Amino acid sequence: MSLQTEKKFEEIFRMHFRELHGYAYRFLEDTDVAEEVVQQVFLKLWERDWEKLIHTSVRAYLYRAVYNESLNLLKRNRLKKQYETYQSQHVAAEGYNDGSDTELKKQLHAALSHLPEKCRTVFEMSRFQELKNQEIANELNLSLKTVEGHMTKALRHLRIYLVDYLTVLVLTLMFGL
């Protein structure tokens, strides 16, 4: 990235960060989380060829990105809470875990075993060791784009491989079947 592009990016960051933080805060009602969301949007923008990526105004693009990132975070948190509530109620009612966690782990392990070794390693480092893509790239001596490609491939594979199991699990969580 050229020095001119870096300066332009920094200028955009400084110009829009505060207003985007306020916008994210309206959805998230947590100043730290709102800051993380805005930083994540700028990080994703930095990692891509952002000058070619944006076809509208920069401001409009950033607002839409913060909106989407905020809603995605809220959705993930809501699903996580629903699952935790279900788990706590189910374990309390049954007095034990019925093995759905164990079964999910078995299904996940089976799905991961069908992935190529590098792809599986990248996924496990990302999801189980909670490393960022850049950290994985550095540790495995891969490019960031290669790591992103492996993650995309792994997630697509898991989505396809686990669709039946996850559908049953979600229905069970939602309707207590």
Rank of each mutant, 00 (worst) to 15 (best):
K52E: 06
L53I: 04
L53G: 03
I54W: 01
I54E: 02
I54S: 00
H55R: 10
S57Y: 02
S57E: 06
R59Q: 05
R59C: 01
Y61E: 00
Y61N: 05
L62S: 03
L62R: 01
R64P: 06
R64H: 10
R64C: 07
V66K: 01
Y67M: 01
N68Q: 04
N68A: 01
N68R: 02
E69L: 00
E69Y: 01
S70P: 03
L71F: 02
L71V: 07
L71N: 07
L71Q: 07
L74Y: 00
L74D: 02
R76W: 03
N77E: 15
L79M: 11
L79G: 10
K80E: 12
Q82T: 09
Y83F: 12
Y83R: 12
E84K: 09
H90M: 09
E94W: 08
E94N: 15
G95R: 02
G95K: 01
N97G: 14
D101P: 06
D101I: 13
D101N: 14
D101G: 09
D101W: 11
D101F: 10
E103K: 09
E103R: 11
K105N: 14
K106C: 12
K106I: 12
Q107H: 08
Q107S: 06
L108Q: 03
H109A: 15
A110S: 14
A110R: 14
L112D: 03
S113E: 08
S113R: 08
S113P: 03
S113M: 07
S113C: 07
H114I: 09
L115V: 04
